[in-house]
Simulated assay, not measured.
Amino acid sequence: MPGDFSSGARLELRITPTDVGKRVSVRRLVEITDGHPTFTDTVGVLASWNAGVVCVTRRSGETVRIAESELVAGKVVPPAPVRRGARVIPVPSVTAEELEEIASRAWPAIETSRLGEWTLRAASGFTRRANSALAGGEPGVPLEEALSVVARWYRTRGLTPYVQLPDTSPYAAALDALGWAREGDTVVRTAPLAPLLDLPSRPGVVLSRTPDAAWLAAYRRTGELAEAALKVVSGGPSVWFASLAGAEAEAGAEAVGAGAVPGAIGRAVVDGPWVLFGAVEVAPSHRRRGLATALMGALAREAYAEGSTAAYLQAETDNDAARGLYDRLGFTDHHRYHYRRP
Rank of each mutant, 00 (worst) to 15 (best):
V275F: 04
R182V: 11
A80G: 07
A103M: 12
A245T: 13
L295W: 06
S169L: 07
E254S: 14
A260N: 07
R105Q: 12
M1N: 01
A86P: 04
G44Q: 06
D34V: 03
A86E: 10
V163M: 09
E224N: 12
T127R: 05
W274R: 06
L29T: 04
F277H: 09
R289H: 14
E248N: 13
L207T: 11
A47R: 15
T127Q: 06
E117D: 15
L71F: 06
A242S: 10
E68W: 00
A122L: 01
H335S: 10
A106K: 02
A298V: 05
L120A: 02
A67I: 00
D318K: 08
A218H: 01
A217Y: 03
L197G: 07
L99S: 10
V261R: 14
V53G: 03
V141T: 13
T156C: 06
D185W: 03
G179D: 08
P81F: 02
L299R: 10
L165Y: 06
S201K: 12
G330P: 12
L147N: 05
A268I: 05
A9G: 14
G3P: 01
V26L: 15
V54K: 00
G204A: 02
V280L: 13
L291C: 02
E70S: 15
L276N: 12
T190K: 04
T119F: 00
P211I: 10
P37W: 07
A218K: 11
W49T: 01
A173I: 03
V43S: 13
D327I: 05
E145M: 08
V64S: 07
T317D: 14
V72W: 01
A214R: 05
S308L: 03
S25C: 15
R221M: 11
L299Q: 11
